[in-house]
């Protein structure tokens, strides 16, 4: 009986530490979830004469994917983005983050372009406003332009299946404003 209490405390400690092992210490909860996406005004990667603003993202749910040619983890998620672009209804908007125009274009030429539109953010201004801290990052915006989900690091098939796809289905079903 007198050993029961220390063993119970030990058990609780083991359980807490075990849960701690499974948490990702790099994960930083974003304060932007359920907040409106920031305003921006950026050239497209293809054509510096074409300017895109937040208004271009409204009206339907979109995936916004921050990528760069220098980002090796982006190559890993790229095939998944290609597959989503081909098979699914959702539009993917790319943001070429802190990159050169030539490198960004070359990347899409070599590996394929899953994006409906690619915005060029060489100074990382929009990235800063979106609280980007680890490229690639993927945001889900609803039709009002409110950020509903954020994935830091490569979008994985599990995250797509379990989080993003069900959320998009829900957002499509939401009534138009």
């Amino acid at each position: 009986m007198r050993y029961l209490v220390p063993i119970a405390i030990f058990g609780v400690l083991v359980a807490v530490l075990f849960i701690g092992l499974k948490l990702d210490p790099r994960y930083v909860p974003s304060p932007l979830i359920n907040k409106p996406a920031p305003e921006f005004s950026l050239e497209t990667l293809d054509d510096p004469a074409i300017i895109r603003t937040k208004a271009d993202l409204l009206g339907r749910p979109v995936l916004v994917n921050i990528f760069a040619s220098w980002c090796s983890a982006c190559r890993v998620e790229h095939p998944l983005l290609m597959e989503i672009a081909q098979r699914e209804q959702v539009e993917i908007i790319g943001i070429d983050y802190k990159d050169s125009r030539a490198d960004g274009r070359a990347l899409l030429q070599a590996h394929g372009n899953p994006y409906r539109d690619v915005l060029f953010d060489p100074a990382g201004k929009l990235g800063l406003d979106l609280g980007v801290y680890g490229v690639p990052e993927t945001f889900v915006l609803d039709r009002r332009g409110v950020i509903r989900f954020k994935q830091v690091g490569p979008l994985t098939p599990e995250a797509w299946r379990n989080d993003v796809k069900p959320l998009l289905a829900k957002l499509v079903a939401e009534p138009a404003p």
Partner: peptide, 17 residues
């Protein structure tokens, strides 16, 4: 393994000085 590799590559990208 792919996910693990992706995470490693991502970590390297983060650590670029």
């Amino acid at each position: 393994i792919r996910a693990c590799l992706a995470l490693c590559l991502w970590a390297v990208a983060l650590a670029a000085p």
